[in-house]
Design a protein around this nucleic acid. Sequence first.
DNA 1: TCTATCATGTAACCAGTTACATGATTTT
DNA 2: AAAATCATGTAACTGGTTACATGATAGA
Lengths: 232, 232
Amino acid sequence: MTTRKVGNPLALAVLATLSEAPNHPYDIAQLLRSRGKEQSIKINYGSLYTVVRSLERHGLIEEVSTEREGLRPERTVYAITGPGREELHDWMSELLGIRQKEYPQFETALALAGVMHPDKVLTLLDKRLAQLAQENAAAREELTRYLAILPRLFLIEGEYALAMAEAEETFVRGLAESIRSGELNGLDGWRSLHKTGLSPEQWKQLDDMAKRAAAENSKGRTRTTHDNSTST
Amino acid sequence: MTTRKVGNPLALAVLATLSEAPNHPYDIAQLLRSRGKEQSIKINYGSLYTVVRSLERHGLIEEVSTEREGLRPERTVYAITGPGREELHDWMSELLGIRQKEYPQFETALALAGVMHPDKVLTLLDKRLAQLAQENAAAREELTRYLAILPRLFLIEGEYALAMAEAEETFVRGLAESIRSGELNGLDGWRSLHKTGLSPEQWKQLDDMAKRAAAENSKGRTRTTHDNSTST
DNA sequence: TCTATCATGTAACCAGTTACATGATTTT
DNA sequence: AAAATCATGTAACTGGTTACATGATAGA
């Protein structure tokens, strides 16, 4: 990922909005709001003026005029600049065309789930599952309703989010079942870990196993373009 | 989401590691590395000492001894405290049991895709699709290989990540196809937007449409527990 | 001998968040 | 008359990143 001078999603949204027409900060926010973009873009409107200033400082947008209506505070109208257009295009191309590894919190939690008792984990997964099922049903309904009145083009973010949430639902359901049924390979070890604890030697054994597995794995790997391992 | 005193994933990983046994920072890092946790947790080892200090400042871990081997620098061994255990448990419960809305970059990009020319978007989606197909195939292979030597319990994060990536692949393939075939509802408008541009009135019309749709939608919604809207 | 890496830390810096300040206008 | 909200901004703060500094030991 190229490191951008102004890198937060609100900045991208501002650039995108200004690419339509010059505008002043408050109205940019209104536009984003009315289009419901906060649902799919992490936006903190409190940072709006900070971000706009930063975009200006970097020459991606520029002041084109300051107007005043009655005695209300002056409003500064900004326009996107040439470099701004370029940045927008480049940034969007990167986001759409290249999949960047991200770290959803749930993945983090799964990676550390071993520290919790398996029964507790099962309870929590069931809870998550209930939430997922409920929210996904609601989202499906909402999407259908919207599809009746808006061109699908305006709803792709929502469709994507739903598709991902549904995949998570399926995954969690499967995982919960395989814990409940006891069929999950490694479950006994997990249980005993929380009943008696593990001696340092047992821990070491586990880690050696992991290391051997990693070695085994890189051996079996038929050299792909996957050689990012040597990068700093 | 309860706002945590120390809130970054590395801190969680440190707590989790110390919940096994007291340890010193460097070895915590080694452990996390050897278990391959960086693949599923966003870890910046450069921040390790900063994070450890912060955890200590908040009473979640504490110094238990400082040992020295030969003339090597002293190493401070930390242990998790009572409050630290509590925090770890609570944090993990939240991450596993409650789905928090996150904002993957691709979703952001899709929400703003309108600013790019549809043909360009199609090209980019194809590019992403190729990457996804290739990476997912590799990941599937790797998982299978690991499954032969490690208990499945150790691989759930990987399975989750793969499941999500596969869902994305399916979604992107579908989206690309519906653009290519021209079947995507709204495509004409999108095209003309990039050929001739839109007049201010047309923009306004679009936004009004969105607003009416939103109104329509909230009307149709049968009041669920979904009332987070009124929260601060 | 020179380099790598083991191992620990400090300090400057920065993007972005929070909280505050201001005052006009519109709504209740 | 009070409350809400329109509209703009500033300033302090903070979590975390980056970069640097140190020196020992092990391996080439």
